[in-house]
Design a protein around this nucleic acid. Structure first.
Lengths: 194, 194
DNA sequence: ACTATTATTGAATAGTGATTCATTATTCCC
DNA sequence: GGGAATAATGAATCACTATTCAATAATAGT
């Protein structure tokens, strides 16, 4: 017998995030990912079905973590919808502090996965959006948020804006502190430009 | 001699927008685009250098139109920054009314073009953002907009949110009138959620 | 009607890189 | 130390499709 030494599965996943972020999914080569992970090209296929499988795993774990975090926040009864919204944003930003490359992959590479409903990405994405919707609905019910907003549109607008801002940050994290970004985003969402 | 009959260049461009929107740039085949345009595969190369050339042309024209429209709006002295912001949003939405597929391509396919600074997409994009920035700056100067916002962040947040909302609309234009989307977006940007 | 010129075609080619698999290496157990 | 048993390798294969180009078609001028 021979024991598997080190965590190659995780090493490959980490390498893939970096390489996908740098070159984009379609231009990323399996051989580059393997190099970066310190394994042979063929070894990648011992741990993942294929290239798309790697991307699916990245998003599976990401959404699982985000959705779980959001679920906990939504359940809380000690804070109101406004504070919940703040916490969601904190959660999102925290996840990307340690790993800016993940933000880039998150923003750029999931469109076609969702459109083609690969894996259960689409379901997890729906879950997340529905949970986010609950918070907004709660805020409207308690007269904390403006009642005329179209919830689905607002939800879409916020997530799109957040993704875009995260991307900017992931590319220029030297000059832009995440703290500053987060403060601004919270303000925009609540008060708008006026 | 032989005359070129019809506008094949435009036909190919229109076909490409549809096919890119449907399958995404990387999964779109030249042969499919040619079929859709009613020409032979090889003919595509009489009008465009290569596949990327088609995408570059799509974005060149799109950004040229958007930037030109924005330039005119920024120059106007008969309206204030708030009204200018409304007009920009109108402009953006109008452009996609006739062509929802274009919205999908616009949202999904330009990240790598900008990152790699292909063609002059990146320059035109910068121009557009800078013009948008001018409007916000003007609003702040005239005390119409809140003075503490980070202009670059806000600009990024708005454009990301807009893109995301446009994408939703382009996919569900049956159930979601553009008018409704536009009204909501204008409201969000100015007043936020509270 | 013929010829020159340019437009168009689409099957053949070529480049790329994902995936496979025969071979080799490592570890465990006796 | 030897032999299972499994892990890992990486060069060869395969699949896909962008691009090319020799052949053909269409038009204009004479």
């Amino acid at each position: 017998m021979r024991k598997r030494v080190g965590n190659k599965e995780q090493a490959i996943l980490d390498a893939a995030v970096k390489v996908f972020a740098l070159h984009g999914y379609h231009h990323a080569k399996i051989s580059t990912i393997a190099d970066q992970a310190g394994v042979a090209t063929g070894s990648v296929y011992l741990y993942y079905k294929n290239k798309e499988g790697i991307l699916l795993t990245i998003f599976d774990r990401l959404w699982a973590e985000l959705t779980e975090g959001l679920r906990v926040i939504v359940k809380r009864s000690d804070i109101d919808a406004t504070q919940k919204l703040d916490l969601v944003i904190d959660k999102l930003f925290e996840l990307f502090i340690a790993n800016p490359a993940l933000a880039s992959v998150f923003v750029n590479e999931q469109q076609h996965l969702i459109k083609e409903r690969r894996g259960n990405i689409a379901r997890q994405y729906d879950d997340f959006l529905n949970l986010a919707e609950e918070i907004i609905r709660e805020g409207v019910r308690e007269n904390k948020f403006h009642p005329d907003v179209d919830i689905k549109l607002f939800r879409q607008f916020i997530t799109g804006g957040l993704r875009s801002v995260l991307l900017l940050w992931s590319e220029k994290s030297q000059t832009l502190t995440l703290h500053r970004v987060r403060q601004n985003v919270k303000y925009f969402i609540k008060h708008g430009l006026l």
